[in-house]
Design a protein around this nucleic acid. Structure first.
Lengths: 188, 188
DNA sequence: ATCCTATGAGACATCTTGACTCAGAGCGCC
DNA sequence: GGCGCTCTGAGTCAAGATGTCTCATAGGAT
């Protein structure tokens, strides 16, 4: 009666579809993400794809969810060193094609689809919160005198990396990361 | 024999198509930009749209070109004041839906289409060059000691505004702009 | 071995896409 | 005003895409 969803055949198809959707998204872009194309890439029947994800925007959601996006790790002390490490990692991840695809697709799709916008909001909020918390903590410990509101910090330090990666299509070096961190406030 | 291209009928159709394409792009997104939809929006025959722009990516190019994008004006002195003015304007323009649509569409489409990537590169280079030139000039006049390479300045100051507008979907206030400008170097 | 469920293969109607045709209207020119 | 020329509107058409449905069969639980 009720669909099981733990049938090995079901899970196998599901995995094949997700992997194929991911592949299509990353190599041909969100515009190429159709049921037919995913079925072909996965080597399964078109009807099966429809059974799992009836609408193609769900397919896109799923495909995007499979690409690991950069987040801030748990803060460490001293906060300045932690922040430099995290931003360097983030800059490096933004150098990867997969991450750029998902980031730009997210920013673009969020303007037209509600669930994509919700995903964007969660993503932005998570980054901003983690950074703000770490900075609040550093400030409480007297490690830094901030020049700005901690909630602005994400835009201030991630923004340049993001712009560099998606608009200028280049990489960000260590020196720029250090400049960004020092721009947040006076570190002791 | 040879198509004229200054026939009033031709120009009228062209204008109607461009306006309609712009409208469709801005209200329904690049995915909705089809010949049929543009024809309907423009109130003209579908075949006419094909005659003017046979491929739909050309339609997208045209539509995007109709939206005025922010650039830096000619530098004024003192450079710091000019820069604050320009960045404030830029932040305000990034608050407009039209500009966000074109910016995110550009970043996204550039990953999949060569001419979009060329457009992106021109856009990024123009912004970076104008800013770098203005900063070089300010440095030569002794107005500023830069902390970074002037070619990095665009990412450093535009990046946060761009991130704020497209990922966090918020506005940037004057104080943040001032922080950004002061982060570039020591102004005299 | 038996039953149940998911899949594969295909049929099917419908919609979309891009090309083409042709009559008629709009425009430049005299 | 009248005469050509060219562009447009409206429609047709074939090919392909899209979404639904059916049914035989294979995979897996018991």
């Amino acid at each position: 009666m009720v669909p099981t969803h733990d049938d090995p055949r079901y899970l196998r198809s599901r995995e094949a579809i997700v992997a194929a959707a991911r592949e299509v998204l990353l190599t041909h872009g969100p515009g190429a993400l159709t049921h037919a194309r995913v079925a072909e890439q996965a080597g399964i029947a078109r009807a099966t794809v429809y059974r799992h994800w009836p609408r193609s925007d769900q397919l896109l959601s799923e495909a995007m969810a499979t690409v690991p996006m950069p987040f801030f790790d748990a803060p460490a002390s001293p906060t300045r060193d932690w922040l430099v490490r995290e931003l360097t990692t983030l800059a490096q991840q933004l150098g990867h094609h997969d991450v750029r695809v998902v980031a730009t697709t997210l920013a673009s799709a969020a303007l037209w689809e509600d669930d994509m916008d919700a995903r964007r909001a969660r993503f932005a909020d998570l980054l901003a919160s983690r950074l703000a918390d770490a900075l609040d903590d550093a400030r409480a410990r007297g490690e830094v005198d901030l020049h700005t509101d901690p909630r602005d910090a994400a835009a201030l330090v991630i923004g340049p990396l993001y712009y560099r990666a998606t608009i200028e299509r280049g990489t960000t070096d260590e020196h720029v990361v250090a400049t960004l961190v020092d721009g947040l406030g006076r570190w002791r």
